[in-house]
Amino acid sequence: MAFLKGKYGVLLAIAIIVLILPVAFPSNYYFRIATLVWISALAVIGLNLLMGYAGQVSLGHAGFFGMGAYAVAVGPTHLGIPPVASALLGAASAGLLAFVVGRPILKLRGHYLAVATLGMGILVAMVLNNEAQWTGGPDGMPVSRLVLFGFKVKGPVMWYWITAGFLFVGAWLALNLVDSPLGRALRALHDSETAARVGGIDVARHKLIVFVISAVYAAVAGSLLAFFDGLVTPNTAGFLHSIQLVTMVVLGGMGSILGSLVGAAVLVTLPQALTVFHDYEHLMLGLMMMLFMIFLRRGIVPTLRDRIAGRVQ
C-alpha cells in the first residue's frame, strides 16, 4: 500500500482501476454506474482541494455543478453556442462566480462559511428552478447529444472512457497542485490560519484560488453529467446534492485524492446495492453512513492506509 502515497502511485492506481473494470463488466448498466462514479469523483476531487487542503467547507458546491450542467443545456438551445464552447463558458462562469463571491465569503470561518456557501448554492438552484423559460423549470430540460468532429458521442461505454480521461487529468492536476508552493501554503493554512498569516502567506489570495479551482472542477463535472444524461434538472444544483458531495469527501478521506474516488464510488454504488432492502433502503443508507464515519472517522482511505502501515511496522 505504500506506493499509494506517492503522486504517481495514486495515478497508477486510478489507471489500473479504470483499465481493469471493463473486463469484469457484464453490461452497460455497470458502465453507467462507473461513469457516474468518475463524474462525481471529479467534482469531489475539486471540493477536496478546498476542504481537505485549504480546510474550508462548502455546502453550496452543487451550485457550481449545476452551472456547468445547465451551461451545456442552455447554451446550444437558447444561445446557439456550440456544446463544447458552452461547457467552457459554464466552467468559466462558475469560476467567475466563485471569484466574485469568494472574497467576502472566504473571510468567514467554519460554520459561517458553510452557511454562506449554502445560501449561494440555494440561490443558484432557485434561479434554475424558477426561470422556466430558460431552464425548463423543475422538470428540467433536454441536452442535445454531443457531436465531436461529426461523430456522435453516445452510450455508456464511450462516456466511460471520456469521463475516466477527465478524472485522470483532474487527479493529475490536483496532485501537482498539492505538490506546488500553493499546496504547501494551503496545508500551512489548514493547520493554522493565523500561523500561516504570520509566516507571510497571503491567506485570502490562496483560499480564493482554491475556491475558484474547486468551482471549475464542479462545473466541468456538471457539464459531463448533463451530456451523459441528455437531461438536466435543478436537483443537480440542489442542497441535497451539495451535502452528497461533502459526504463523499469526508467518507473517502479529506486531503486524499484517492479517497475522493473511493468516497464517490461508495456513495454512488451503495444505493444501488441497497435496493434489495426495498422499504428499508434509506434506513440502511443512513446506518451505513454513520457506521463508516464512526469506525473510519478520518475517512476510508487515510484510516485504512494508516492501519495497514501500522501492521507492517
Binding site: T247, L251, Y280, L283, M284, L285, G286, M289, M293
Partner: peptide
Amino acid sequence: IITIGASIFLRG
C-alpha cells in the same frame, strides 16, 4: 456527516 447519516436513518 454522522448527524446527516442519523437524519437519513430517522427519516427512513
